Computed example of a mutant assay.
Amino acid sequence: MSAKNQGNTFRLEVLKARGNGVLTSIDNISPDTTIAELKKRVAQQKSQLYPDRQSYRAEPTGKSVKDTQKLSELNVDKTKKIYFKDLGPQIGWSTVFVAEYAGPLFMYLLFYIRPSFIYGSSAGSKPMHFAAHLGAACWTFHYAKRILETLFVHRFSHSTMPLFNLFKNCSYYWGFTALVSYFVNHPKYTPPSFGYAQIYLGLAIFILNEIGNLSIHLLLRDLRPAGTNQRRIPYPNKNPLTNLFHLVSCPNYTYEIGSWLGFSLMTQTLTALLFTFAGTVQMTIWAKQKHRAYKKDFPDKYPKQRKAIIPFLI
């Protein structure tokens, strides 16, 4: 607390953003109090509202404020009011990511290793095409990589997300896994039209983009010091695969799309292409949001030639 505000405490009313009711009141709070500190004080009074579940805004319909902002910066020391929103039950990002990635890893292998469980007893005796074997290897590699990145590479700006996201994300990934693996591992699977040339081309595209995706994730990890929410403009490093940052804000998504395009080409299944399309739509939405955030946070310094996800287009 600054010397200027040591004796300038006040009583703060914490109002519900919806319903206009009073959640609680905080006595003897300083204008220098941050939102993060306010969350802890509210949690002391309302134990079920742990800090990660709380969101605040200066106006009932305003935007959520950052944990680092002080009450004085929001003019709350003048209004003596702040508005609370309950984010609902929360769950750790890492927990959600591991759950949503572990499902596809094991579910796909069930279709691949035990086809008789899915297609009938006769399916186990029928040979699988080379493309189906490669499909299982690529799918397994991708989701094993994602789990390892979640545990050892990613640094999340927020520690939790709404519990509902666990069910939503798992439904998406697990559902598409069942759809894709059912047809790639089916006894009546039709191999790619252009044979091994198409298979190896798709495999090469997949591998290159997987390495590119990992390269971007490692660069982004090094960009944010552990335990902080610090944001900096990402630029390429010595790894040539990171040069895509010259063209787009989210090259990790660009490479992700490339991986699944390669997988779709290699296996030549409509369901894999549908999965790629759905992922492209979702990642484009995320990329545009991140692109706007970069330009807002660094209005004068952010490279103007960058697009969000597709070079020169989007």
Rank of each mutant, 00 (worst) to 15 (best):
P303E: 05
F277E: 01
A272L: 12
K188M: 10
Y112M: 08
K63C: 02
P115L: 03
F167G: 08
A226G: 01
K145Q: 08
R114L: 14
S25A: 14
I82E: 05
Q69V: 08
L244S: 05
G227Q: 02
R11I: 11
D67F: 03
L49I: 02
F206H: 12
T271Y: 12
W93C: 03
L214Y: 15
H158K: 15
F97G: 04
A102P: 02
Q54S: 12
I113E: 11
L179D: 09
K80E: 10
A17E: 04
T24I: 05
P104M: 12
Y119D: 11
K80T: 01
V98Y: 05
F176E: 06
L134Y: 13
L105W: 14
I205M: 12
S94T: 03
N239A: 02
L109D: 05
G135S: 12
L220P: 14
T254A: 13
F167R: 11
S47R: 04
P240D: 07
G195K: 03
L274R: 05
K145R: 13
T160L: 05
A102T: 11
W260N: 06
F277M: 11
K304R: 14
I314E: 03
T9P: 01
F130E: 09
I35C: 02
L87S: 10
R57G: 15
K295R: 15
T79V: 04
D52R: 04
Y294G: 00
L166S: 10
N165Y: 15
I211N: 06
F156M: 01
H217N: 05
A287C: 09
P236S: 06
Y173T: 10
L241Q: 05
R232T: 06
A272Y: 11
V65I: 01
L134A: 02
G262N: 11
H129T: 04
H154G: 06
F194N: 10
Y182H: 11
I310F: 07
E210P: 06
K66V: 00
H158I: 00
M266S: 14
S193N: 13
I91G: 09
F194H: 09
L38P: 06
Y196A: 04
K66H: 01
K78W: 03
